[in-house]
């Protein structure tokens, strides 16, 4: 029962997917394709992120985090937050667990928000994919 309650959101969406697939096979199969892609992406990113967070939780004492990014860390704390957020890879949902560990470790609240902002906004790790993107856009142009 508890299991059903915990997974009710997933069960609801899965049911909708099933119904839509029965009504319209084309949309259904497209949706399944996207689900497969997203699942692979998450399966790639989530494990290392959570392991790194576990290590951080165990090894880095609260005092250290507070000294670098806590109250009174000033500009240094902000810069660290921006750097960490920009260097990180992955979609927004991967940032939430990191942010919650930060909050637990006494990182200043505004620095947590700066971190999230940098994560979503400045992505210097993604510039590496530019050549591929360019090819993609060429491909898309040819499709039109």
């Amino acid at each position: 029962m508890v299991l059903i309650k915990r997974y009710r959101f997933f069960l609801a969406t899965a049911t909708i997917l099933l119904v839509i697939s029965l009504v319209n096979q084309e949309i259904g199969s497209r949706a399944v394709g996207v689900v497969g892609y997203t699942f692979r992406e998450m399966a790639m990113i989530i494990p290392p992120v959570f392991i790194l967070l576990g290590l951080l939780d165990v090894w880095i004492p609260r005092e250290t985090m507070m000294r670098f990014m806590g109250e009174g860390s000033g500009v240094k704390g902000m810069l660290i937050a921006i750097l960490l957020g920009s260097a990180a890879t992955g979609p927004l949902y991967a940032a939430f667990p990191v942010a919650s560990v930060f909050m637990k470790k006494g990182v200043k609240f505004s620095n947590v928000l700066i971190f999230i902002g940098a994560w979503t906004r400045s992505k210097f790790t993604q510039y590496q994919t530019t050549p591929k993107l360019w090819i993609n856009s060429q491909y898309l142009r040819n499709l039109q």
């Binding site: 997974y7 497209r30 392991i51 576990g54």
Partner: peptide, 30 residues
């Protein structure tokens, strides 16, 4: 201990993640 914490954190959020994956699939199909 770190790995255990990682696993626990993962288990806690897994239901939401799975739900979102399917929701994203539905949205992107449309």
């Amino acid at each position: 201990k770190a790995l255990k914490k990682a696993l626990k954190a993962f288990k806690n959020i897994l239901p939401q993640f799975l739900g979102i994956i399917v929701l994203v699939g539905l949205l992107m199909a449309v």
